[in-house]
Design a protein around this nucleic acid. Structure first.
Lengths: 202, 202
DNA sequence: CAGGCATGTTACCGATCAGTAACTTCGCCG
DNA sequence: CGGCGAAGTTACTGATCGGTAACATGCCTG
């Protein structure tokens, strides 16, 4: 592993892999999201990435580990999206939720959307031992935690109840997206969230 | 079922296949629901049903067609559940929705639950040509239609908006079930539905 | 008993799956 | 130029995928 002339400056990062690994990873992410995890094999990935299987296995220990990486990537991407959407409304939890739902509706209605990659993985990955399973579980737990925290911050009458309800609205939109070509019921998500927050006096 | 000496009454149904087909089908339904569609192969099904592949292909034209049958079965089962839950509350749409959500929460929290088989199929089946795809789409469309009809019947201020919101709550519960071992946010679904209906003056 | 039909058995097909070995080529840098 | 590492190439493994052919049973009924 660690090559780097040991004498001077061992280059903190492991030389930042040139490109093949990134090309494979990017391709895999798109294919997994668009067609599902089980539906996409290694051959399909390396084919689409214009490389070969050996180059793949030089960069990734196994498909399952690649899947876990894909899910970690989706997780990180999701939270940076969240933080970005929320940023303009410091200490305004209600506005934060509204911004989140507005952005969520837009994102989910776009024609490239296939819902939430993490949620889809929750359907496809059943085995507890799969390295991606833990990523999915902790992702969804964090969503619940954050919605409840927001509900608390906005002084809702029953914060846990409101937080859960908001999460259900969001997750439901992801799921519905898969069967309704234009998004379907998701379009009502923002107003539903507002109605709930109003009713909770927040 | 119907025995009937063949001399009279030629039994309109094709003699109601004895049992192998049913054994296979029942086994397949359980495996598909528990482990997912793509994760379960023909060999696994016939193995679990204590038969062999030939007997399978004498009863079903292909795996895809079996999957479609599985989904049609889930669909029929779902609507008979719905009608049953709703039956005691004729012309009381609000009570019908409450009964539906109460039953939904109970069902979804049970430890055998793996959410909604149709929704899970929406994740796994991406190809438009797959015979199961149409079943899933029409199932979800009908859910939306019914929720909107209920919202209309209860004279909600904005029936389409309320109907969609109720659907999102329900679908969200199915999805959350897959990551939260005890059901998670679903437990709040009934109260959320009530809050929404209250707010819509229904 | 004879016939017929539902089922079981075995072996196979070609395709694809995840994963590996051995060798060659390319491009960069000293 | 010489060398080294990253990448490409080809061929392969053994398992599993969906699906089929040919044949051997069993069992019920006429």
């Amino acid at each position: 592993m660690s090559v780097a002339k040991p004498e001077d400056l061992p280059a903190c990062e492991p030389a930042a892999r040139p490109r093949v690994r990134d090309r494979i990873f990017e391709t895999a992410c798109e294919l997994f999201y668009r067609h599902g995890i089980r539906a996409v094999g290694i051959d399909a990935i390396v084919g689409a990435a214009s490389t070969n299987k050996m180059s793949f296995y030089r960069s990734f220990p196994s498909k399952d580990e690649l899947v876990a990486d894909y899910l970690r990537h989706k997780d990180a991407h999701f939270w940076s999206w969240w933080d970005e959407v929320v940023a303009p409304y410091q200490n305004q939890p209600r506005q934060q939720v509204e911004a989140l739902f507005e952005a969520h509706v837009n994102k989910t209605c776009s024609k490239e959307s296939r819902g939430c990659g993490l949620a889809n993985a929750a359907v496809e990955i059943v085995e507890d031992e799969h390295p991606g399973r833990a990523v999915v579980v902790s992702h969804k737990s964090e969503i619940r935690r954050r919605f409840r925290a927001l509900a608390t911050a906005m002084k809702a009458r029953d914060p846990e109840q409101l937080g859960d309800a908001l999460m259900l609205l969001m997750e439901g939109g992801y799921l519905a997206r898969l069967t309704f070509p234009k998004g379907g019921p998701v379009v009502s998500a923002l107003r539903a969230a507002q109605t709930l927050m109003d009713a909770h006096g927040a």
